[in-house]
Design a protein around this nucleic acid. Structure first.
Lengths: 337, 337
DNA sequence: TTGTAAGCGTTATCAA
DNA sequence: TTGATAACGCTTACAA
């Protein structure tokens, strides 16, 4: 069968219909719900699609059908590999059902996030997954007005936009702090990123734990540091200068903990002899440094799966789903504590 | 001004037009090219947009105008943070001009990539950036037929689809190998990921260098390892078992090199005393491990910038741009070699 | 500078 | 099971 390519202009459904000698609707049906079309015609259509190299126009389809097979995901940052499991969880649910994932970045800034959300809504995505729980008022208004299914991920918001799938940063941080206390550490220091809403919740959890074990909530036991490995260095310097009797450091961030470990190495501080270290997220790296780092394992993959599932349930009106899911966390005890 | 929200149904441009007492076209113009509309009317329109909470429908806009402000980016994986700089470079160019970036993942598998490309084309994106240079025949056909501007990134393809912005994996690997040779290392081992097209090019560069310094191209000096830190461990085991007299290891992957370094640490091998290590990509981590790792710095950010710029130039028909840009690379010598 | 009319390429709806 | 027709919400092209 000779393949004749149209020299200019895109191939439209109408062209396929002509070639297959059927109506446009038959082509549309053969593409969207093949089982509703007679086999003979269906094959004729599919052949014409091949011959012409036709690419379905989802713009027109979505406009006309008022539904979209694109789901948007807004991540604080693409720098951090902690989200890759979540992305995988989402994709694994979406792909078999013919949906597609598009990712954008908010830089953890509500204004940037608003822009990104606006773009997704303008694109009329079928659903939105936000790995963040504090949004600009405007963003919330747009989301609610749009009637788009939304799942929030990074924590449990006080006032959810719609659905939520997460673990509790506060509860997790509290649990890890209690774990360290149980191991016998007496003077635990908390280090978190400055101006990060999730880090703040983690600090609250840290304070909760101190209260529970009857230790006075000394504000001096918390330090805000910068992003990246350097933040870990800062944490160690802080301890050296201000809390020399500290015997454990709980870093509310994976990279921070590794940075701290490197700095201890440089200073010749034994870990955990001189200082125990625990971290908040169980990156692959945590297992490989030495000593391996004690850390909190979060259900990143499952968060992705459930989020995607809940969005799809809503889109396909299967259920009026539960709106908040707590997926918990797990403490992984290793050599560093 | 009381804000009355439509109880059901989305707000359309027509609703805004009614409220502002102008035609739809005036609304359209006020939104797309504000300078072409009288200030009074423009403000009336913008106010109506606010009051109603109108969100522009880009689906309809793109369908009608036959252009899109969405640019697609296909990455081999989101796990690896090496691409974050590229994403930033692209965003920095796109955002000020009102374009948006959507990211999808190919898993370095041509079939997955084809699916993702098909989805982007169906979505009628304005341009596509592919961080990969080997695509399925079908994908190439679709891309060419679509007339969408395309930039390929990860290497220099033998037969480019369209535009290319990259560095040469082969040249970079050759340069690093020569650098190690110049430092006096006599028996250099190369470790790369199995079944990775970029790793293969890097191996060719390694062999080029051996040839140039008159060393015989011993196939036994190359080893294919698995992804992740474990790959580095495998490389060291390989050396221990097969090339005990090796004095340098060149890892064609950032994480690999760190894994190798950790393994040396475990075995008590001095780096670079017993074995020098060099790596292919200059992640932040490279500076922070000890000893800090010698590595190749690649122009990741600039690759993003140029790619985006070339796409936009093509879209806005500013130029018939150069189609291939070589952005080079840089060797960063540190303590590990 | 503003408005009118005719698409953009698909699908919902209803009829055959 | 298939087809005709009228949207979907916007912009292009042209007229006023």
């Amino acid at each position: 069968m000779p393949v004749s390519k149209k020299p200019n202009g895109t191939i439209r459904m109408r062209d396929v219909a002509e070639r297959a000698q059927v109506s446009r609707m038959t082509v549309s049906r053969a593409l969207n719900r093949p089982e509703t079309v007679n086999e003979v015609l269906r094959n004729r259509v599919l052949e014409a699609v091949q011959d012409l190299g036709y690419v379905h126009n989802h713009l027109a389809r979505s406009l006309s059908s008022r539904r979209s097979n694109v789901i948007g995901l807004v991540l604080p940052s693409l720098e951090n590999s902690i989200f890759s499991q979540t992305v995988k969880g989402i994709s694994d649910v979406l792909r078999p059902l013919g949906y597609h994932l598009m990712v954008a970045e908010s830089s953890d800034d509500p204004e940037d996030e608003e822009r990104v959300i606006a773009a997704f809504l303008a694109q009329r995505v079928g659903g939105l997954i936000l790995h963040s729980t504090n949004h600009s008022a405007n963003a919330v208004r747009m989301l609610k007005a749009s009637d788009t299914p939304v799942v929030e991920n990074g924590d449990f918001p006080v006032d959810p936009v719609d659905m939520v799938v997460s673990y509790s940063n506060r509860a997790a941080a509290k649990a890890m702090t209690l774990h360290l206390a149980r191991l016998g550490y007496k003077r635990i220091v908390f280090a978190g990123l400055a101006a990060n809403p999730r880090a703040s919740q983690r600090q609250l959890g840290f304070l909760d734990a101190l209260a529970e074990i009857g230790q006075k909530q000394d504000a001096k036991l918390s330090v805000a540091v910068s992003r990246g490995f350097g933040g870990g260095t800062e944490a160690i310097s802080f301890i050296d200068a201000n809390i020399p009797d500290a015997d454990a450091l709980f870093c509310a961030g994976d990279v921070l903990a590794v940075g701290a470990l490197f700095e201890c190495d440089r200073r010749g501080w034994a870990v955990p002899g001189r200082l125990a270290i625990a971290s908040f997220d169980d990156l692959d790296l945590m297992r490989h440094v030495s000593p391996a780092l004690t850390s909190l394992r979060l259900p990143r993959y499952e968060i992705g799966r459930r989020s995607a599932q809940m969005i799809l349930d809503r889109i396909e009106e299967r259920t009026m789903p539960v709106t908040t899911v707590d997926l918990g966390f797990e403490i992984v005890q290793r050599a560093s504590s």
